[in-house]
Structures are given as C-alpha cells and as structure tokens.
Nucleic acid binder design. Sequence first.
DNA 1: GACTTAATTCAACGTTCGATGAATAGATAC
DNA 2: GTATCTATTCATCGAACGTTGAATTAAGTC
Lengths: 216, 216
Amino acid sequence: MRNNAEGTRNRILDAAEELFANRGFEGVTVRQIMSKAGADVALAYYHFKSKRDLFDAVLLRRAELMNEKRLAALRQVEERHPDDEPSLEEIIGAFTDPLLDMLAEAPDEWRSYMALVAQINNSPEWGGELMTKYFDPLVRRFIETIRRAVPGCDEADMFWSYHFLSGALTLTIAETGRLNNLSDGLCDSADMAAARARMARFAAAGFRALCAENSR
Amino acid sequence: MRNNAEGTRNRILDAAEELFANRGFEGVTVRQIMSKAGADVALAYYHFKSKRDLFDAVLLRRAELMNEKRLAALRQVEERHPDDEPSLEEIIGAFTDPLLDMLAEAPDEWRSYMALVAQINNSPEWGGELMTKYFDPLVRRFIETIRRAVPGCDEADMFWSYHFLSGALTLTIAETGRLNNLSDGLCDSADMAAARARMARFAAAGFRALCAENSR
DNA sequence: GACTTAATTCAACGTTCGATGAATAGATAC
DNA sequence: GTATCTATTCATCGAACGTTGAATTAAGTC
C-alpha cells in the first residue's frame, strides 16, 4: 500500500473537485468527499491538513497546467509574427482556445475544474483574491501583448475590455445549461466547438470598438 | 408589535441577501442571518418556512423590479423608433444600463443582490434552473428585439452572442475587485459609470462581428 | 525477524447545524 | 374585560459538522 498514497491523494482531489464545483466550498462536507473517494474521513486530514487546504490543493493542481497551455499558445502566436503584430483575434484566441479545447477534448477531466474556476471568479469572497493569485501573471502577459498589438489604446478601455472578455469566457466554461433552455435546444452550453468558433471574434470586435476611437 | 411583521420580514431578507451574496447558500447559517437581522432564530421559520424558501424569497423580492426596469427601458427604445429599427447599442443598453444604473445610484441597496445573481448565473447547480425561472421571459423579449434589428443573423450566432454578453454583464455586477488588482488601481470593479460607458459598445460590436457575415 | 516509517482505520471530541413545539406578549375584536 | 389571533421568545431536538489521537496495517531497512 506504500505507493498508493499518490493514487489516494488524487482520488481525494478528484472527488473534492467535482463536489466543490457543483455545490461550492461550504456546500460540501469532508465526509461526502471521502465517501465519493472511497476512503476514510481521517485520510483527508492526513494528506491535506484541513478542508480549506484541500480546496486550495484542488485549485492549484490544474492551474499550472492551464497557465502553461495558454502561455504556449501565446508564444506560438508571437513566433508566427516575428516582424509584425498578431491580430487581436489571434491573441485572444491564445487566451481562450486552450481552455475551450481542453474542455472539448477531455471534458470529464476538465469540466468540474472549469466550473469551479467560473464560480470563484464571480464570487465576491474569493474572486478578487484567488483569481489574482493563480492567474494574474498570465493575464498581465496577455494584456501586455494586446497593448503592443493595439498601440495607443486607452489603458482603462483595455482593462475593461479584458474584464468583459473574462466574464464571457467564465460563463462559457461554467457550462450551466442555461443556453439550452433559452434557445429551446438549438444551442448547447457544453458545445465548446461552437463557443470556440465565436468567442475570439466576438471579443476582438469588442476590443476594437472601445480602442479604435482613441488609438492611432 | 402587530405591524412590525413586515418590517421584520424585510430585515430578515436584507440580512439574508447580504450574507448569501458573500458566502453562498450553504456558507451561511440561519443563526448568522437572524443575528444580523436582530431577531430570534425561530422567526426565520415562522415568516419563511425553511432556509431554502428564505433563499428563494430573497431572489424573488428584487427580480420583479429588475425585470420591470429593463422592460421599460426596452419599450422606451422601441418607442423612440416607430418607423425604423433601433441600433444594437440602444437595445443592448436597455438590457444592461438599468442594472448598472441601479448599482450606481443605490449601491447599498443593490450590491448584494447583484452579486448574488452573478454567483447563481455561474453555478452549475442553480445557473440553468434559477436564471431561467426568474429572467427568461425578459431575455426572450430582448432577443426578439435584436432579431428584428439584425435581420438574417444566424440564430445560433445570436444566442451565443447573448451568452457572451450575459457573462460580461454578470462579472461586472459581481464587483469582485479583481479589476482593481489587475490594473493596479487604475480601474475599479465598482465603477459602474465606467462599465456603462463601455459595455453596450463592446457587446454590440461583438454581435455585429458574428452576425454580419451571415446577415443580409 | 526485529525496527522504522508511511498510509490507513477506528472511535470519538465538542460544536453547530436546520428545524420545532410550547409558552409568552401585544394588538384587535366583541 | 375577556377571547382571539398574530408575532415573537425560549428551550431543545437529533443529526451532522470539522477535526483529532490512538490503534492498526503494509512496506522498506538492516
């Protein structure tokens, strides 16, 4: 059993991730998590030292991989344009598509985590603090690239544009099913290919509408 | 004491609204709510019959007024254009500005409620169901107006555009403070005038970018 | 095969949870 | 002035909460 420790840890994280995503931090009990993970309650406190630390571990586990994928996509865009500036669509796509692709290609692995991030981003209690902690470096890098691609754009316009984009992306990865109800089944909240085909175009046009007047 | 019942009910709703908005349904205890409301715990179960029913009452209380304000704004836009179609900016503004204005003019009254709605909209557990229940009629009316203003726009493009707009608006009314961190204080998540000056323009451009290709 | 250490189980702790029924007070009705 | 009904208080229920310490098991060390 010595080497199953890692496996147990991951089973706990998997169970916690899914439950936290559906019901929030306080809506889940440690007993529910451990029951789903098929392990004793006390093991949660052995591997992680409190419920809150387990929550942080859930967040941290996939944040790094997510950031790496987005950073790689951004670098790829930059390398594609050694002499000129990439388009807004390309830059925004590098920010959004990695998430949508991960959801499309491995939904069972990512759905809960993405939904959890979406809830946190919209939470007054945790939105400011946790999102800043896990994602700010990447976002600052992303905004830096935009700044170069749209020179002269007002700084506040740019931050607000990013904010709108962040909201749109966040609700998309939440996959709440509301779009299904609203469109009477025509659209599917979980159809990431449909979202991917539209999101960067939508947001790039928004950026341009705000920046165009003041740039150049 | 006979006629203080209404006052007590509202004090309970006020306390519940603020606490639910900050910590979510499960993150708050009935005792905390009643302590903040300055009343006995049992009164929560006398006026509302369970914690869950109290939660629904909190949501319902302001939903109607919100819908009325948005519907009035939409009607006003339509009346301004008896012979031609209003612009996308005007229609979207009728959808978003009432909320931003309420937040700007009476923040203490609306901040918690808006934050609560934002969290619910991004929750897999409640997003699909509750948002549909309280806001679908208005949203369908809103989409209908857009459909007339942008004839020939692909239906799926329109629903996804609305979805992105909904996400942007939702994160805005959540006022998480993340924008303050990200912009090093240049922008303020709670600055609804700044949001109002940009949101409809951003979203209208997004709508156009998706619909333009297939319309006409 | 004794020793150590990491992983897991078991039983329980004090606290707090949502909820309830009985008792009380205050205003109204007759 | 007594009966009535609504609003509120008080004491408490059983269940479930997060967390812990001690005991047990399995694996690596020598």
